[in-house]
Design a protein around this nucleic acid. Structure first.
Lengths: 232, 232
DNA sequence: CATAGTTTCATACAAGCGTTTGAATTGCAA
DNA sequence: TTGCAATTCAAACGCTTGTATGAAACTATG
């Protein structure tokens, strides 16, 4: 029975460095230096760099998903099996936003690592990512229970938009801060969760009547529809 | 006076390869092979790989911005100096969405290159990116003219959300397709532009009353606010 | 034609990467 | 203590990357 000391040191250092600096900028030599272990230890314990990343992605992904599902189940239990759409969306985007942008004592390297994984989508991760779909399906199912009259496509678009706003806020918070010259308060994580949840819930409660798109100005440079209605 | 033949071949090949496969997977040797020029030509004509990428980012960025501004000016002219918020948002997200997800004959390698640049944010690009803020300010100004009663923060959040939904839809269209099992029609670009514009416009027309966030279930795992109201 | 300047070319270089190797060290059972 | 397996270690390997070099080929002017 191995001591696992070296192994977990590597995992911990790799998670932190990847979360902070991304996959492209972190080498195995950086990791073993931070973990204070020998270079060959990575290949000895994990087989290869890709397998190390894959293991990180799986364990940390499970942790993040578990947290979201806990919030979802709590919300559904409180509502007798059917949660408010806002509560569902909050369970979907809240943990990651708090883990990435919240006050330091609430941040989690797991959440920040998973965001990096989602941003850079390095090959070993891309190979596993299908698991995420199954996880999201549970949220889609809860949303369906919460909004039985909502169309399928509207529902998926709403879920997609919620994730999009959360993800991009984490990714590009600096641009928003600069653009707004500090008027968007990025330290108020609960406030921005509320914004995202409210925006997505609005599109779900009152889905736009858009089987057909409003035609844009046809004289605008660069836009000309040459094959009308081919997607119908 | 140089022939510029080699130079533009390199630019063209680099733009296409980077747009298709990303910065991480494309080497100078790939580019010169596609452009059918000698390896040393890149350093001769551009100085370095980073300067090649920087030049691409600047020229292609200008092209994309010009297209968006053309739509914006047309919309404002049609409204006598004040455009509908929907038209403004459509000018903001439409060109890129069409350029990346539209039918083949409407796609632009410039738009796809710029999305790659935004996704991967490689060092030579990160150094220039401030220019984008100035460009977005023009849209913020138009939005302010269109919605004089909207609060500043609400306005910037709305702009941010519109870009977030557009960007993430381009980035992750495959996940949405799988999740919805084909029920979200990704070939109907105008339809999805309308969805994104409507969603963002909704949050701008009826900004949520969220000076204070609705308190999430306090018994949920992992969430505990330890420093209340520190952002006020 | 001759020649100076520009551009192309094959080739080499130094650095960094993940991985491998084989010996040294450790921990523990007999 | 002895012996064996598990682990650690320094060193090197093979490969790819961006860049540099100096000769060759081209272009255009006198």
């Amino acid at each position: 029975m191995p001591s696992d000391q070296t192994r977990s040191s590597i995992l911990e250092a790799a998670e932190r460095l990847y979360a902070e600096r991304g996959f492209a900028d972190v080498t195995l030599r950086d990791i073993v230096a931070a973990a204070d272990v020998n270079l060959a230890a990575v290949n000895y314990h994990f087989g290869s760099k890709d397998e190390l990343i894959a293991e990180l992605f799986m364990t940390r992904g499970l942790a993040t998903n578990r947290e979201r599902l806990n919030e979802l189940k709590a919300a559904e239990a409180a509502g007798g099996g059917r949660a408010d759409i806002e509560a569902i969306l909050r369970a979907l985007v809240g943990p990651t936003l708090r883990g990435c942008l919240g006050p330091d004592n609430e941040r989690s390297t797991a959440a920040r690592f998973m965001i990096r994984a989602s941003i850079e989508a390095v090959p070993p991760i891309r190979r596993i990512k299908n698991r995420e779909i199954d996880h999201l399906r549970k949220f889609a199912a809860a949303m369906r229970r919460s909004l039985p009259d909502c169309g399928d496509a509207d529902l998926y678009w709403g879920l997609h938009f919620a994730l999009a706003m959360a993800h991009q806020t984490i990714r590009d918070s600096e641009r928003l801060l600069k653009l707004s010259e500090g008027q968007c308060d990025l330290d108020d994580v609960e406030g921005m969760i509320a914004r995202i949840v409210a925006a997505a819930a609005m599109t779900l409660r009152r889905p736009a009547n858009m089987g057909r798109a409003p035609r844009p100005n046809s004289d605008v440079a660069g836009y000309r529809r040459t094959t009308p209605g081919l997607t119908g």
